[in-house]
Amino acid sequence: MKKILFLLLLIYGTSCFSQKYFTRTGATDFKASVDFFEPIEAKNKSTTVLLKTSTGEIVAQLFMTAFQFKIGLMQEHFNENYMESYTYPKATFKGKLVDFNLSTIDKKSNYTLKGILTIRGISKEITTTASLKKDKKQLTFKANFSVTPKDFEIEIPAIVRKKIAKKVDISLDYVLEKKV
C-alpha cells in the first residue's frame, strides 16, 4: 500500500510541477539590408524567453534599446526615429509550439510556432516553423520569420527608402535552461 501511495504521489508530483525552460540572454537578430548599401542589421543578445514544456506555451520579451548595431548613429536613428524606443521600450511575443512534446523531441524537432508579436504597441499574428533540440540540460530553439515596417506602422522617410529592405528578416536563436 505504501508503495502504491508513493507511486501515486510521484506521478502526481511530476504532472503538477510543470517544467519551465528559460533564458535571459537569447539572441534575436534582424536584417533589413539592401545590396550595395550599408548593411542594416542588429543583434539583441538580452532576450528573455520562457517555455512551458508541458503545454508548449512560449513567451519572449526584449528591450528595443538592447539591439546592438555596428554603427552608433544607426542605433540612435533606430531607437529615436523608427522604433520610438523610449515610448515603446519592449517587443513581446506570446505563442505556442503546436503539439510540443519534450519526451519525443529526439524524433520530432520541427514544430509550428504560432503567436502574437507586439512591437510599438501593435500586434501581428506570426506563424512559422521552429526547430528544437535537446542536449542534456539545454534546449536550443531556432526560428526565422519576416515582417515589414508597414506591419508596425513604421514610417521610412523617402530619402532612405531605397536603403532599407521592404522585408525585415528576423532570426531567433535561444539556448534555454531548466528553471529551478
Binding site: 535571459r24 543578445k45 528573455t48 520562457l50 520579451q61 534599446t65 538592447a66
Partner: peptide, 14 residues
C-alpha cells in the same frame, strides 16, 4: 539599465 523584465520580474542590465 535596459529595463524591468516582467516575465522574470527583475531589473535587467547589460
Amino acid at each position: 539599465i535596459i529595463g524591468y523584465d516582467d516575465v522574470l520580474e527583475e531589473l535587467k542590465l547589460d
